[in-house]
Amino acid sequence: MPHTSCRHPRVRREFRELSEHDRERYILATVCLREQPSRLSTRETQWVRDGVGRKIAMPSLYDDFVYVHWRVAAETHGTPQFLPWHRIFISLYERALIRHCGWDEGIPFWDWSHDSQSPETSILWSARFYGRPTPSTPGSSPDSSPSSSHFIGASNFTHLFATWPSPHPIDRNWVQGPQGTLIPATFSPVELEMITGMARYGLFRSFLETLPHNLVHSGVGGDGGDFATAPTNPIFWLHHGNIDRHWARWQHHHLHIAHTYEGYPDSNNATVDDMMHYSGMYPDVPVRYALRYGNESNGYDEEGDVLPDAELLVS
């Protein structure tokens, strides 16, 4: 049975704090998961070329994460499980990068509060990393059907395809402004401090999810704006790393209630024994497994790791 010991703590750093070499290594590790065939799907693997000529599996090991998230979206969004379920989920992703793609650190996060007034100007959207949205063209999907949305532009993720809920080009749709496409403003550090100061888990979770979390998803748009299949867009992991970081900060600043868990506004509709489901990727575990985190910090900057010590079933 899994437990919460942390034998190999890994550090999670803000993406911009990584060296140029490590930024590129992380991006390539993310792409690497798309080059591995699915471990969960019963569909026959098809191989396609992405926008830069790499051979991509459909469905892929990366698609397994989208599938698992899609399967349980209703029970993990807008509910108390939002934070603990995603804490395990991003740790599973981190472990897959390490096991299959040569990554050897904690996954980075995107502190979007640093870019709160103009998120689209972040270096994350440069062609070296995640790319900006670009209008799609007819006949660009795997089944040659027209698409009216927006591809990820020139980057390591150019013209990648998604599997769930059906094959389609990964899209990202920003707001059209007078100076070009943009992402609406996100929460500033001051506003986040107000949320982190809330002295009750249910209230904190509700505000963190419905305000800054949802705002970033809707701002990125396209696949990233669909909560069920949002992991399709690779920025998901940096975004949720930051969300989990704020939960870790909340736990650190409220040690007397750090391991509490409740609904909001009804405190009686959730317990730490509620099971979290991972659809065959990982054993179903109770919420209590995600409430503990290494060194009371969860691995951000100088801190520990959270994933219970169980085998990843997609290995």
Rank of each mutant, 00 (worst) to 15 (best):
A258W: 03
W85H: 03
P142G: 10
N156H: 14
S118D: 13
L83F: 11
A290L: 06
S188K: 01
A127V: 08
G280N: 06
N242I: 00
G221D: 01
R288Y: 12
H114G: 00
E303D: 11
F129Y: 15
F204L: 04
R87Q: 13
A96F: 05
L160H: 14
T163G: 00
V306N: 07
I195S: 03
E14H: 13
Y93G: 03
A290K: 02
A258M: 09
W47G: 04
V52K: 12
A162R: 11
Y93D: 04
I243C: 04
L92I: 12
D64N: 08
H3Y: 09
P9F: 06
S5P: 05
M276R: 03
V216A: 06
E120W: 05
G177C: 07
V287H: 02
H86I: 04
D226H: 13
E262C: 12
V306F: 06
V220D: 03
S267A: 14
P138I: 07
A127S: 15
T186S: 14
H77Q: 14
G241N: 02
D171W: 01
H246C: 02
W103P: 03
L61I: 08
H277W: 09
E75S: 14
S116D: 11
R172G: 00
T196D: 05
P169L: 12
N298Y: 12
P308M: 09
P37M: 09
R288E: 14
R249L: 15
T196Q: 06
Y278V: 03
N295G: 06
N295Q: 10
Y130K: 01
S145F: 09
D63T: 08
W112G: 04
S141L: 08
T260E: 14
A29E: 08
P286C: 09
G280D: 05
L192A: 02
R200G: 13
T229E: 12
H77Y: 15
A57E: 06
E193C: 02
P189K: 02
R54L: 13
T30H: 07
H256G: 00
T181R: 13
D274W: 03
T196W: 01
E193W: 01
T79P: 03
H240K: 14
F65E: 03
D284Y: 05
N298F: 13
S140R: 13
H217D: 08
S136I: 04
P231H: 07
P265N: 08
A310E: 12
E105H: 10
S155G: 06
L18Q: 03
F204S: 00
S315T: 07
H239I: 13
Q176W: 06
Y67T: 05
S206P: 00
R172M: 15
R39M: 09
I257Y: 02
G139D: 12
A96Q: 03
D266M: 08
F187H: 06
D22P: 04
D301K: 08
I235G: 04
D274H: 08
S166I: 06
G177E: 07
D111N: 14
R10S: 12
P59V: 09
H239F: 00
E193H: 04
L61T: 05
S145L: 14
Y26E: 05
Y261H: 12
A230S: 15
R172T: 05
T186I: 04
E120Q: 15
S60V: 11
T181W: 10
A96V: 08
I152Y: 04
